[in-house]
Design a protein around this nucleic acid. Structure first.
Lengths: 340, 340
DNA sequence: TTGTAAGCGTTATCAC
DNA sequence: GTGATAACGCTTACAA
């Protein structure tokens, strides 16, 4: 039951002023020319009496908490879990702790939690927004509150963001399909109005255009990043008289849904149709067939987001129109038939 | 640029004492018989001037922060990500926020982060320990610090914990194999000295004993919850002259390693050997063959952990020898050959 | 029905 | 080299 002690009690015990103690404990001993002896005494007593600084009081005084708020739509989603990992790691290395909030893909929660984080006096916020509305985020940024958006960004407001190069990633995926002889490529999308989704669809269209393939609107379908959506749209696609020879799934969960549907319909991937998916996962290699994917560099994204935020915290002038798009990587496996 | 305002500024603006304001804002208006008019004025002004309470000051005064620390070995691991989700959800419903720390499976980090969380004056801590040493945790508990252990618990110290019934889960898995005609069952384990691992191995042994199968020490092997471990041990097992007819993998990552090895050796699951794995995953159904697993009720674990912690925070007397083991569930799929 | 003032544990300013 | 003291923003006796 080793009780801990505060600076006042230390000062009483040592017959020294709290000022001196504070100085020693904050490494300002030389700066204030505090004697060697005093230093040692203080350090020793602090250890013995188990002094634990109260970061609340410190934060109140210095108006800074060494805490950054992290708001994600769903921490269960491996994509956000990985992002959180890299963010936590980088932040912790820089002496910051993470207040984690999960909006559960709900805009109202997101707004409320942003408010909560502000009350907590976090030094800044990294947010992966639900993705449709941005006014609450813009408002925060206008107040000059340090804020970095990741993943589902907003191009029309000048809040700093870091995200994947979704356009290029999608373009590469579809180009890869085309170059291997696919002519009728369906695109099962996620949240239609979210920017990453738009960028991916744009990349899909651009690739078709570049290679002079016809654009069929009926081949762009779906409405969420879920497995269910992948399943339903696949069933739908193969109820047409001329089904596609390839599917581009805009998320890993969608791809799982596609695989499920294929199994049920006794269709073989990649013999009956090819599949390529956004989002690399630990299990991507273990599916049958192993999945060809577009990998997002989550570590890079997280790390950069933290560093941009910290710069922002130090100097708020810096923070307009900072936007970073991280390249993706195509991982070749066996879910795409190499026809040529 | 709507600046926010503190209670003092509000008081000046309204020509009311901070006391009154505080009372109204904390819903104690009736209790102190504050007039309707005053109430309204206060509420209105608070909204207009954008009053944001400073939780630091509040926490300092009340010595309570409405924050709970969560310390996990690896937030990237879907198991801990899911646990975090349910913990965040339950905590947030009860008005608490989560300070997230990741020990990166490292004991030294764990010790340091526990200290950090204490400095932050969190009201309590939920920890999924690295799992081998418990003295630092025990120390915290002895100081009467509200603390709940999840997953990798310690039976020999009286810190409250909530975890899966690993023994029963393992027993059920092995019994299932035996009842379907398997005679030579290997067990690829995770962290050997962690309690969940011990319990699972015990369950494995108990099932063999119950059904009068011989126990071979060479069939219990491995040393970590990683995919690599699963891979290596499987290669090893099948370099013996008489390989097992079933493998019990003590984690999902281990199972992925087993599958990889099987593929490389051109062995078919379940025809050449059966596989059953601890830990259900979203993709378990999508592997080929789909994986028979022992599911842990992560939601239950997280929810209970939070509620036990909150009770502990309210009344520290309650917190000795509280331990809960949540039942697991066997999910039957196609990785086990049904021989009988 | 409202107000005064102390105190939570720090750090910073100014003084000696 | 060291120390008083005010201040950070809030809650709560105690007064009125």
């Amino acid at each position: 039951m080793s009780k801990s002690v505060n600076i006042k009690e230390l000062s009483k015990y040592l017959n020294l002023s709290v000022t001196t103690i504070s100085r020693v404990l904050n490494g300002k001993a030389k700066e204030y020319r505090i004697s060697e002896k005093t230093c040692e005494k203080v350090l020793k007593a602090a250890k013995e009496l188990n002094y634990i600084p109260n970061t609340l009081a410190r934060g109140l005084k210095l108006s800074k908490t060494d805490t950054i708020g992290l708001l994600v739509p769903n921490i269960s989603n491996p994509f956000f879990a990985d992002l959180s990992k890299s963010i936590e790691k980088e932040a912790s290395q820089k002496g910051y702790l993470i207040l984690l909030c999960d909006s559960d893909e709900n805009q109202q929660n997101e707004i409320k939690l942003l408010e909560t984080l502000k009350k907590r006096k976090v030094d800044g916020i990294i947010i992966a927004p639900v993705g449709l509305e941005s006014s609450h985020i813009q408002k925060l940024h206008r107040e000059n509150f340090p804020l970095v958006v990741i993943d589902r960004y907003f191009p029309d407001i000048n809040v700093p963001y870091v995200t994947s190069d979704n356009f290029q990633g999608a373009y590469n995926a579809v180009e890869y399909l085309i170059k291997h002889g696919h002519k009728k490529i369906a695109c099962i999308q996620g949240l239609p109005n979210s920017q990453p989704n738009k960028d991916r669809v744009r990349g899909y269209l651009e690739a078709l255009k570049t290679y002079n393939l016809p654009i069929e609107n009926s081949l762009i379908l779906g409405d969420s990043y879920s497995e269910e959506n992948g399943y339903i749209q696949t069933r739908l696609l193969f109820s047409f008289n001329s089904p596609p020879d390839a599917i581009f799934a805009l998320s890993n969960l969608i791809a799982l849904g596609v695989i499920k549907a294929a199994k049920e319909m006794n269709l073989n991937i990649p013999d009956d149709f090819s599949l390529i998916s956004f989002d690399e996962q630990p299990y991507s290699a273990f599916l049958t067939p192993s999945l060809t994917t577009i990998e997002q560099q989550r570590n890079e994204i997280g790390k950069l987001a933290v560093n941009i935020l910290l710069k922002f915290i130090q100097d708020s002038n810096i923070a307009n129109n900072v936007n970073v798009k991280i390249a993706t990587r195509l991982i070749e496996r066996n879910s795409v038939k190499l026809k040529k």
